[in-house]
Each structure stands twice: as C-alpha cells, then as structure tokens.
C-alpha cells in the first residue's frame, strides 16, 4: 500500500489535471460563443452627409429633423435667426433621442427632462455632458450638408 502522502499527491495531481481540462474546455467553448455573439463592427460614417428630400421638407416644416449617420442620430434644426445647427441627438444621460423646442430655443430630452442650449451645453436636468456639435451648412443649391467628425467650433 502506498504511503498516504503519495496517494494524496496523486489525487491532487489528478484534480489539477481535471481543473486544467475543465478550464481549457470552458475557454474553448466560451471563446467561439462570445465571438459569435459579439456584433460585427458597424461601419462608422465619417464623410459629410447630405439631407434627403423628405428630411429637408421636414426641416422646413418643423424647423428640425433627426437624421441617421451610420449608427448615430443627429438632430438638425434651424434656430430663431434662421441659422442651421446640428447636434448629436443622443442624450448624454440615458441615450434617449432629444428634440428641438423652437418656442423656447432649447434642446429637450423628454425621458428625464434634460435641457441643453443650442450649442449642446447642459442647462438643466441630469445629463452629465454636453451634446456633440457638428457643423451644418446650406449649400448654394439649397441642400443641407452635415459634416461628421468634430466640428471646428465645438473644439
């Protein structure tokens, strides 16, 4: 009969082997599963985007419109001085979509009553950061173009 110590050693060696096996096996299962579940990278859009016809007419009618830029949303609006502005439409608080309130000249998030000024700075409510600002221009042919990436005045 082998000494007790040796027997324990053999058992613990077996346990270590089993543990290595289980951990390695779990990794070999989890790695593919996690890779599989991780969404494929959404293409981030960087170039300028041009507003489509119906977006333009909505801008005309409501003084503001929310447009898609890749995965992001951008609110384009016309302030009381007829100047075009563009801000990220994703509230920095919980990510709701904000809206432009022409009467009060504020950007308002209805979820938790967050208020931003027309440059995206927080005026009131829980939002922790300013909204990202983009430069927005009206071309000579009447079309509206939003420059993605950080606008110069937001820097």
């Amino acid at each position: 009969m082998p000494p007790v110590g040796e027997k324990i050693n053999r058992r613990s060696l077996l346990d270590v082997l089993l543990a290595i096996g289980v951990v390695g096996w779990l990794a070999s299962v989890l790695f593919p599963v996690l890779r599989y579940l991780k969404p494929l990278g959404v293409q981030t859009q960087n170039g300028p985007i041009k507003l489509k016809g119906e977006e333009l007419s909505k801008l005309e009618k409501d003084h503001s419109v929310i447009v898609r830029a890749g995965a992001a949303r951008i609110v384009v609006f016309e302030d009381s001085t007829q100047q075009l502005r563009a801000l990220s439409a994703k509230c920095t608080h919980e990510g709701c979509t904000v809206q432009y309130v022409p009467g009060e000249s504020v950007i308002w998030c209805a979820c938790h009553n967050g208020r931003f000024d027309l440059d995206g700075r927080v005026l009131a409510g829980p939002p922790p950061r300013t909204l990202e600002k983009y430069s927005c221009t009206r071309e000579s042919d009447g079309s509206v173009v939003v420059q993605l990436g950080r606008g110069p005045e937001a820097a």
Partner: peptide, 9 residues
C-alpha cells in the same frame, strides 16, 4: 460566411 464561428454553430 460572415459571423465568426457562425459556420460552427
């Protein structure tokens, strides 16, 4: 074809 390990699943 596109999803990593999708073929395996």
């Amino acid at each position: 074809t596109k999803v990593p390990f999708g073929w395996l699943v």
